[in-house]
Write a protein that binds this DNA or RNA. Sequence first.
DNA 1: AGCCTTGACTGAACCGGATAAGTTCGCTCA
DNA 2: TGAGCGAACTTATCCGGTTCAGTCAAGGCT
Lengths: 339, 339
Amino acid sequence: MKRPTIADVARRAGVSKGAVSYALNGQPGVSEATRQRILAIATEIGFSPSSAARALSGASAGAVGLALCRPARILGIEPFFMELISGVEAELSARSYALTLQVVADQDAEIAVYRRWWGERRVDGVLVCDLRTDDRRIPALEQLQLPAVVIGGPGGTGDLASVWSDDAAALTEAVEYLVALGHRRIARVGGLPDLRHTQTRTDAFTAVCGQLGLVDAVTVWSDYTGEEGGRATRRLLSSAQRPTAVIYDNDVMAIAGLSVAQEMGLTVPGDLSIVAWDDSPLCRLVHPPLTALGRDIPAYGAHAARQLLAVIAGQPAGRVQDETPHLTPRGSTAPPRER
Amino acid sequence: MKRPTIADVARRAGVSKGAVSYALNGQPGVSEATRQRILAIATEIGFSPSSAARALSGASAGAVGLALCRPARILGIEPFFMELISGVEAELSARSYALTLQVVADQDAEIAVYRRWWGERRVDGVLVCDLRTDDRRIPALEQLQLPAVVIGGPGGTGDLASVWSDDAAALTEAVEYLVALGHRRIARVGGLPDLRHTQTRTDAFTAVCGQLGLVDAVTVWSDYTGEEGGRATRRLLSSAQRPTAVIYDNDVMAIAGLSVAQEMGLTVPGDLSIVAWDDSPLCRLVHPPLTALGRDIPAYGAHAARQLLAVIAGQPAGRVQDETPHLTPRGSTAPPRER
DNA sequence: AGCCTTGACTGAACCGGATAAGTTCGCTCA
DNA sequence: TGAGCGAACTTATCCGGTTCAGTCAAGGCT
C-alpha cells in the first residue's frame, strides 16, 4: 500500500502542491470552496502529511521528549512515572503531538540525549523530571535553547519554565496532623537526597518540627525501593526511643514500612502511625489502608505538557504552581497508644 | 546556538556533502584518511544528522511506536508496562532508535494511530500489546504493511512476528503445585476476558483442573484493578464451599485479595493460599510475601524490540518463544488447614 | 479606459540528508 | 605511450512538505 503524499492530493484536486498545503494548514490563499474540496479529498485517500518532510521544511517536529533517569526496577514499581506519562500523553495527543521516551543511566547520558535530540531536530521540546540540587541539565538546556519545562521546584530551574507543587506545605500539614493526634516522636524516611524535592521536604520537616518543639525529628535516607524503605524502617523501630509515627517519601516505602512494623510485632496504627507520600491505589490495597499525601498526578503531567507546548509556541517561560498535595487520612494513623 | 548540518561538516572538511554522507555511514567512496578527518570534525562540532532529513530521503525514521490501550489508573499501578517499556527502551537506545509512545482509548483509536504513524512515516514499526481474541489490529497492520511485532500469543497473530511466553504451562505448574500441597478447591481471578492471554490461561486452568479431577475449579473475571480483584475475592470467599487457594492474573489483584482475606478474618496461608501472576517487587512487600509466577519482563520487552528491529531490517517474521513464567514459592502458599 | 488592488492560485526554491551518475586522477599493463 | 580501470571524490536529483515570489483574471475607482 503506497502512502499518499501531498502531490497525490494535488493531482486529484487539480491544483498545485502549494494550494493543498495552504488549504490543509488553514492559511489564506485558497477559496473556501477549494479548501473544502481539498480537505474532502485528503480525508478520502487517507492523507496525513509526512512528519519528516514537515519537520525538514522548518515546521515543528511534532514531538516532545521525556528522558527518565531511574533504573528499570524503580521505574516499574513506582506508579508515579506511568501516571505522569499518561497525563502528559493525554494532553499531547489532544494536540497531535507525539511523545518520545528514553530511559537514561545518569545525568550526563541525559544531557547527551538532549543534545542529540536537538541536533536531530527530533523533538520540539523536552520535559525534565527529577530536578536535582545544582542540576547540570538546566544550564545545558539553556545553552541549547531547547524549549523545556521542568517538573519540579520551586527554584533551581534557571530561566526554564516549570511546574511545581508546594511539597513544603504538604509536609507541614502532615506533621501538624500527627502532632494534633498527639505524636511527639516523628521520623521521616526520605527519598534520594540529591533530588531537589527531597531537600525541600527535609527543610520543611526540620522547620516545622523545630517550630512545634519536636526534638527527635529524624530523617533517614532511602532510594524509593521497598527494600531500602523496609531497612530504614527496621533501623528506626529498633532504636531506643522509637518514633510513634513515620512519614515516607513514597508509597512503596510506606508499604514496606508497614510490613516491617507488622513483622516486628507492632500494630498499625496502635503502636505506629504511617503517612505515605503519593497516594496511589496501592495505599488502599494494604491493611490498614495508608493515610497519604496525594494529588492528581496525571493532571500534573498534563499541566507540564500544556506549559511545554506554550513555550514551544514562543510564549515566555512561566512558573506554574500546581495543586498542593493534600492529606487523606485512612486507617494507618491514630493517636499514639500510651506506653 | 545553530544546529550543525552536513553542509557545515563538509565545508570545514573541504569536501562535498556527499563525501560526508558516505564517510558517516560507513559507505565506500572515501579514503580512510578522509573518513577519519570527517568523523573527527563531525564529533568536534557536535553534528548529529537530522532525523527528519534522513527519514525523508528514504532511510528509516529511526523510531518505533508503542500504543497502550489501558486507562491511566491501570497503567499507573501495574508495574508490567513500565518494566516492559524500560526493557524495550534499553534495546532500542542501544541501536539509536527512539521510542514513541501513545496512550489510546480503544482498539479503533489504536488502529487510527497506526494509520497516522504510517502516513506520517513517523515510525518504522510498532509493538502491539494486549493481544485480543479476534484482534482487529492484526489485519489492519497487515494491510498497511507496517512492520510489527505482537507481544503475546501463541496464535492469533496472523502473519505478524510475535514474542510470546507459555502462560498455559506456567498456570499448569501453579495448579499442580497447589494440588501437591493438598488443595482441592482452587479458584482463579482472571483478567479482562477478551485478552487472548486470559483466554489461554482460562483454557489451561480448565484443562488441568479437569485432568486432576478438581470439580469446583471456578474462574471469575476482573479487570486487573485492586477494587475489582478485592470484590471478586470477597465473592469467592463468601460462597458456601469457599476455595482454599486462589490464583490471580496479576499482582495488584492478588494483594487486594490478600487484604480482603485478612479483613474477613482468614489467615494466609493457613485458611487461604494465594498465587500471583507477575512477580513484581510488590509481592515481596506485603505480609506474607506472595508466591508468584514471575519472569523477566524487561527482557521480554527487549526481545520484542530486537525482533521488531529485525523485521524492520527485512528479515522474515518469526515467532519467538520467551521464557516461561516460573513459580517462586513464598509465604502465601501452604497446605490447607483441616476444617 | 486605464490603473490599481485583491483574491486565488502556480512555480520554484528550500529544508538536510541519501544516493545514483558523472568526473578526475593516478596507476597498471599491453 | 596511451588505453583501461578503479579509487576518490563531486554533482545533481530526489524525498515531501512549506513558503515566497510571481501570474492572471476579476472588480473597483477615478
